[in-house]
Amino acid sequence: MTDMISNQQNENSAIDDQYIFDIHDFNLWYGSDQALYGINMGIEKNKITAVIGPSGCGKSTLLKTLNRMIEMVPNVNTSGSIKYDNADIFSKKQMVEDLRTQVGMVFQKPNPFPKSIYDNVAYGPRIHGIKKKKVLDEIVEKSLRGAAIWDEVKDRLNQNAYGLSGGQQQRVCIARCLAIEPNVILMDEPTSALDPISTLKIEELIKELKDKYTIVIVTHNMQQAARISDKTAFMLTGELVEFTDTDTLFSNPKDKRTEDYITGRFG
């Protein structure tokens, strides 16, 4: 009997370990307009989860909720729960700064600070009180290597990040995100402003980052979701229509609405 109970506990903790985010019956309103309806989904650790859907379906809203960036929009109300690492992200005990340290974000347009490449990456660690040059040097190199851009910028770390190409700027932004050692990286259409080669470089990078981080990516590019993600969620008018393995979703979706959207028969 005791064994059974401990086995049950082990199983439960195995499930808890599998998911870094557990979203349960989650609703969100902008003022009186409901944007998300009863979302239930688990985001698996060390997996790439893609969220697709037409404009206005709520995918970016959902993404921005995961690190509470959504609270920057006035008049946002929510119900239901979102747990990060088994703790409610909306609880009073949860410091929003801590959450955002662990759940980093990369945006649609590369948005480096108007500073040197070095200072861009060192910005986060400095805010967290790291002052020693040697430690910062190490973090900057490690982060830029992690973002697959070290070799391209190592000789010009003190130059302004604005002088880089769009694809390079985006990788510096990813490095800036990695510098504070998050567990999760949220990406909101990270390649939509980039050319195809830069896009492929970022996609390769995202796949490499999966070993160390959990990635949630919102993308308008369905082929991108099909290429890089392990799981794909399809959203429509604030509802989660289908959430399954990417291979299944793109070869044999269960819901007619998913089929219509991904095959482009949804006008």
Partner: peptide, 9 residues
Amino acid sequence: QQPVASDLR
């Protein structure tokens, strides 16, 4: 066209 789902099948 990079077909998917039933189009691909």
